[in-house]
């Protein structure tokens, strides 16, 4: 459990970080909270010559609450997501989901940017961001661009982000008043990734439904969302079950995962509906 040797860099701004990435190519990786990357390095499943720490870059920090949009710096920790009062009232779903990630120690270090950039199907934030229809802001050698969360995930650990790009901020539209939100997650114990998790928004004739750890990417289903918007809960669940593709692991076999996926989704829908105006 000792990582291979590496050079440590601590740039003070995004531009310097990008130039280090350019200089060392796939020899280099950025590290945010390190709570996904460092375990992989200790297992020697990730080895890189250069580690670029983003902790000293102020541009990547801070939560800004606007009337229409919330902007989250990539380096905002999961702990900050939980303790920020403005965020909790603007988009309560984020706090509810963050509280179900890992444990307090991990959440003090783990960042929202790292969580969504990682590309691990077990991470909770990607599905959540798809449900919320968030947009990821990326900076690279060729400038800035935005990618919708719903377009970002290609396969496990493969995302639309280019190797030399850094995720800088996440913009999340503030849901309309009257939209009920809920995050429901089954896990084996504290500190565990989801056996199945569901993020649901419903109300005002709209709905959005996404699920986590049931395929090699998060699953936002348009069909499921449309069905729920029309009040068809069974149709929503059926569409989602069609979209997911879980694999057997220590959490259980495929039939079990499909079953609890439906249970989590129904529970999240129930709670979201009870919160809708």
């Amino acid at each position: 459990m000792i990582p291979a040797g590496f050079e440590y860099h601590r740039p003070g701004d995004v531009a310097s970080a990008i130039s280090i990435l350019q200089e060392y190519g796939d020899e280099a990786r950025v590290v945010a909270g390190g709570h996904s990357l460092i375990p992989m390095m200790k297992l020697r499943m990730a080895e890189m010559g250069h580690l670029i720490d983003l902790q000293a870059i102020d541009e990547l920090k801070g939560i800004e609450i606007g009337a229409e949009t919330v902007s989250l710096g990539a380096m905002v920790t999961q702990h900050e997501l939980i303790t920020h009062d403005g965020l909790a009232s603007a988009i309560p779903l984020i706090r509810e989901a963050a509280l179900q990630i890992a444990d307090p120690q991990v959440r003090y270090m783990g960042t929202v940017g790292g969580n969504v950039a990682n590309g691990d199907p077990g991470n909770d934030m990607p599905g959540l961001m798809q449900c919320l229809n968030a947009t990821f802001e990326l900076s690279g050698p060729d400038g800035n661009r935005s990618v919708a969360a719903r377009e970002f995930y290609e396969a496990a650990y493969f995302t639309a982000r280019e190797d030399e790009e850094i995720l800088t901020r996440i913009s999340v539209p503030v849901p309309d008043a009257g939209v009920g939100q809920a995050y429901e997650k089954q896990k084996r114990k504290i500190g565990d990734y989801a056996t199945a998790a569901a993020a649901v928004m419903v109300g005002n004739g709209t709905a959005s439904v996404a699920m986590t750890n049931l395929a090699d990417t998060p699953i936002w289903s348009e069909a499921a969302s449309t069905a729920l918007a029309a009040g068809d809960v069974d149709g929503c669940v059926a569409a989602m079950l069609d979209a997911i593709d879980p694999v057997a692991d220590n959490r259980g076999p495929v039939e079990f995962k499909k079953h609890v996926a439906a249970v989590m989704l129904r529970r999240a829908i129930d709670r979201a509906q009870s919160r809708a105006a």
Partner: peptide, 16 residues
């Protein structure tokens, strides 16, 4: 008796 094995008992007994 982890979650899926308990679930399997219930499933095997026709409770789903």
């Amino acid at each position: 008796h982890d979650h899926w094995r308990i679930w399997k008992i219930a499933n095997g007994l026709g409770m789903h």
